[in-house]
């Protein structure tokens, strides 16, 4: 695998909505280098042809639907108390529509 560029790392970081300084990007590039070398070695040595990917420890089906029952929700004031700015019972953020 070819070495990943600093520019690509910056693009990935900004997609994730954060930034780092130049030294940190350099450390990250070095870390990627080790990881990609490990992966390259793996791809060469372990044959995974026809192996089914495993997402969870067990091959089980979970029920993702709960019964449609009314449950008591937390009061609005309690939910909003962790927000930075609250105006008239709503969280205030910058205007997003120009």
């Amino acid at each position: 695998m070819e070495k990943i560029s600093i520019e690509k790392l910056k693009e990935l970081a900004l997609n994730l909505k954060f930034d780092m300084d130049e030294k940190q990007y350099q450390t990250l590039q070095d870390e990627f280098d080790i990881m990609l070398r490990q992966m390259e070695a793996i791809n060469k040595t372990v044959d995974t042809t026809n192996v089914e990917p495993m997402s969870f420890p067990f091959d089980v089906c979970f029920s993702y639907l709960r019964d449609d029952e009314i449950v008591e929700e937390s009061p609005r004031d309690e939910i909003l108390r962790n927000a930075n700015k609250v105006v008239e019972g709503q969280i205030q953020i910058h205007k997003v529509v120009e």
Binding site: L9, L12, A13, N15, L16, F18, M20, Q24, T27, L28, E31, F32, M35
Partner: peptide
Amino acid sequence: ELIKRRFVIGS
């Protein structure tokens, strides 16, 4: 920094 690096690797 450590967390950011892990997130970028994940992404």
